[in-house]
Design a binder for these strands. Sequence first.
DNA 1: CATCAACTATAACACTTGTTATTTTACAAG
DNA 2: CTTGTAAAATAACAAGTGTTATAGTTGATG
Lengths: 183, 183
Amino acid sequence: MARKESVTIDRILDASFTMTREEGFRNITARKVAAKVGCSTQPIFRVYKNMEELWDAVYDKAVQYFQDYISLFPRTGKRPFSNLGLAYIAFAKEEKQLFELLFLSFENSKKSMYEILNGDNDNVMFEIALARGQGCINPEEMFDKMWIFIHGAACLALTDNFQLSGVETLAMLEKTYDSFANA
Amino acid sequence: MARKESVTIDRILDASFTMTREEGFRNITARKVAAKVGCSTQPIFRVYKNMEELWDAVYDKAVQYFQDYISLFPRTGKRPFSNLGLAYIAFAKEEKQLFELLFLSFENSKKSMYEILNGDNDNVMFEIALARGQGCINPEEMFDKMWIFIHGAACLALTDNFQLSGVETLAMLEKTYDSFANA
DNA sequence: CATCAACTATAACACTTGTTATTTTACAAG
DNA sequence: CTTGTAAAATAACAAGTGTTATAGTTGATG
């Protein structure tokens, strides 16, 4: 009865997300996305009411991408917060545009840092429980302090002011945990 | 012999800098600056060759503004790095747009973090010397670790994820210094 | 095969951007 | 006061933005 659609929502969203990873959130425009997909701008506005709706979809995809990244990251650390921290810092280094979008936008931030970080599988809760299990007196406070440190390393990594390798970073995180634990 | 200039370079730069503090770096346009100054766009291009030159001037003014901010901030802390850290975190909270421009832009960053931070009066050198004077074995490494923590708190403050008051922040910084020192 | 509704492309609108050409204005020198 | 010249205002250009109106294409259904 009707023509078959050739430009799917997935192709549009994937192209937009890839462009966001490469060029940043604010650089995705209707015409650029269309060029990447290989169509005119028209199918975009069939699928999304306007660009703001597309931006929202990209944001949501970025949140999911981050949470998958954290989940799949190899867990080589033994201390609480070390695995989450290591993955978070690696994400900041490798996905600068997404990291800025998710954790450093102070205008138009849709979800809170904690909401994104904790995610569907309770990353933060898990680490806090781990700390409590290892005899940490106040694991919530320990998370707060460790997170300041971890977020600091990640934000330094973003601007290439953090040069440690993965194993060095892990060692530092665990040493820092011990410093706080024995204070 | 000629007409007297009414739109000075200072008025243009001041308007641009104020707009950067309020609306951010990437939102200053020739027409907005002209509207703020109360003239047409023409005097802007008499004074600056193009917008990029004006942006550079705004950036340099932001660096100077930061260094003055640090210098004038009350020094209530006793530990090494505590006064510099407290001022840095306060700057992130109060001057979000400038903080992002100076310390979080990973594209087009003109000066290095250390260059801006150390400034004309050797802020970092001073704190490191202070630490050495108080018996710190490796004050450079101590700076690195403290700076990860301080930068982390500042970046959390940027997105309103750091809620401590000034005195509470100071206490936390000094406690952290002790944790690292006694590790 | 013909039809017709959904999908796509083309073009256009209104707006904003940096930048520049042109015109007007003001002021100091003669 | 006239004049020349530098500054400022006006207006325009080309490029880019989101968005929409219009036209063309396609393909399953009757």
